[in-house]
């Protein structure tokens, strides 16, 4: 299947991309790695009139330490995250979660910014950046703003990102030796997660437990109050609203959230 025809531009800078976004508004869409966007366009579930390709901008592809954080360019590919020594030592959760995205070919193309912007509740990276308390940096002709990951998602495939904004950077706290784990439950290796649970430093991010990725706040609160892992994990599905689909019922997803949270917390506790 092939996309509906569109016009194409490949600006040579972020500013150029922002200018085009401002000019074409909601008719335009950003193409980075294309592994969320192109499948949607091929199935004709989306048909932008203008595609702005930022996939080759070097200024968006980097991983560097900035004080207590690691700053990651939005155009950094999953494979870059997976293979990064900096992340491997300073934010191992993120490298590990990146390794579970799709398959090698997908990881060679897909970008962290694209994945976060797509806001798919079943996607792995959003839950990881939630658990990491990351900051998402958005830029538009109006300037730059920083949004905490916990305040980024607003619903199914939607976020606080305005149509003229571009995710340019993700800032992730260096967690160093803090315990972490990612539990991804699938039937097939390259499936989307039926449920996923990312844990780091006592924070818990949930994949595919509602319209948006979210934190297991009841579990986190219980842990903070000194509850055992078993007690805290039993609360992991509180405040979630999981779907029933071909792979799982809502009830089963709730069970998996509790089970995987227990396992992830246990692993993270080492």
């Amino acid at each position: 299947m092939i996309p509906v025809a569109f016009s194409y531009a490949r600006p040579d800078s972020v500013d150029g991309a922002l200018a085009l976004l401002a000019e074409h508004g909601e008719d335009a869409t950003i193409l980075a790695g294309g592994h969320s966007l192109l499948p949607v366009m091929k199935l004709r579930l989306g048909a932008p009139e203008v595609v702005i390709d930022i996939g080759r901008l070097p200024e968006l592809r980097y991983i560097r330490v900035q004080g207590d954080e690691v700053a990651i360019g939005a155009g950094t590919r999953h494979r870059d995250l997976e293979a990064s020594d900096v992340l491997g030592s300073d934010v191992p959760l993120l490298a590990a979660v990146a390794r579970t995205v799709g398959d090698p070919q997908v990881r060679h193309r897909g970008t962290i910014g694209g994945s976060l912007a797509h806001a798919d509740p079943a996607s792995d990276l959003p839950a990881a950046v939630l658990a990491l308390d990351a900051t998402i940096v958005l830029r538009s002709p109006r300037g730059e703003r920083q949004v905490p990951a916990t305040g980024f998602y607003t619903g199914m495939f939607s976020s606080v990102k305005e149509p003229d904004e571009l995710i340019v950077e993700i800032r992730v706290p260096r967690t160093g030796s803090a315990g972490w784990a990612y539990e991804k439950f699938t039937r097939r290796a390259n499936d989307w997660a039926i449920v996923g649970v990312a844990v780091v430093d006592g924070r818990v991010g949930l994949v595919n437990m509602g319209a948006s990725p979210l934190r297991a706040s009841a579990t986190e609160a219980a842990l903070a109050d000194g509850a055992s892992i078993d007690e805290a994990a039993a609360l992991a599905d509180q405040g979630t609203d999981p779907q029933t689909d071909v792979s799982a019922t809502a009830e089963y997803r709730r069970h998996l959230a509790r089970l995987l949270t227990r396992r992830a917390l246990t692993t993270a506790a080492g």
């Binding site: 191992p92 590990a96 390794r99 579970t100 030796s177 803090a178 315990g179 972490w180 784990a181 990612y182 539990e183 991804k184 439950f185 699938t186 290796a189 844990v199 089970l259 995987l260 396992r263 992830a264 246990t266 692993t267 993270a268 506790a269 080492g270």
Partner: peptide, 14 residues
């Protein structure tokens, strides 16, 4: 042990 799926459970204690 505590893993749940081949290749998809990773963590500091794993």
């Amino acid at each position: 042990g505590v893993e749940s799926a081949p290749g998809f459970s990773t963590g500091s204690g794993a």
